[in-house]
């Protein structure tokens, strides 16, 4: 069955069963390895991507449900060399093992697109679906604030 998806501005026509999770289409069919597998049940957030700007768990998202939606992965987040959220992650030296960070960044960038200056409580609500086994949460919190600064310096546009 042919399914068409639009990932990082590019259209792909795929021959996969419609119930295949988007995660495995991205990783094994399209070769986009940045989106990670962690639990397969939407408990860890390592697989987070944007679907029409919303942070979505790709591990439980059937590919048939996102036909023609705008899908953005970590590889497509930056319009230039690096997105301000990614830059903030680098500046704050957030990663330890780094495995969860693509998902963290996708969740944080979706938050900041809607809420330019999030409060601590808003950060907690948005980010608590993303597990970090290494415990980088204090740095993630710093980086979200730093990213908000970088984005506002850019005029708020993502």
């Amino acid at each position: 069955m042919a399914i068409t998806v639009k990932v990082n501005q590019q259209l792909h026509t795929l021959d996969v069963p419609g119930d295949t999770p988007l995660l495995w289409v991205l990783r094994d069919v399209l070769g986009l390895k940045g989106t990670k597998y962690g639990c397969g049940i939407a408990m860890c957030g390592a697989c987070t991507v944007h679907v029409n700007g919303q942070a979505v768990r790709s591990c439980i998202t059937p590919v048939s449900s996102v036909e023609k939606a705008e899908i953005t992965t970590i590889e497509g987040l930056a319009e230039t060399e690096i997105h301000p959220v990614q830059q903030a992650w680098e500046e704050m030296d957030v990663p330890q093992c780094g495995y969860c960070q693509a998902g963290q960044i996708m969740t944080a960038s979706a938050l900041l697109a809607k809420t330019a200056q999030p409060t601590e409580a808003e950060i907690n609500v948005a980010m608590s679906g993303n597990l970090c086994r290494c415990g980088t949460y204090p740095r993630i919190r710093e980086a979200v604030h730093r990213a908000a600064e970088l984005l506002s310096a850019k005029g708020g546009g993502l």
Binding site: L32, K33, G34, T35, T73, I74, E75, L77, A78, I82, Q86, W89, E90, E91, D93, P95, G98, Q101, A102, I105
Partner: peptide, 14 residues
Amino acid sequence: SGVDNRAIVTGRPL
């Protein structure tokens, strides 16, 4: 900062 940070935050295979 970590030498792999750029690859991590941009989702390169690592």
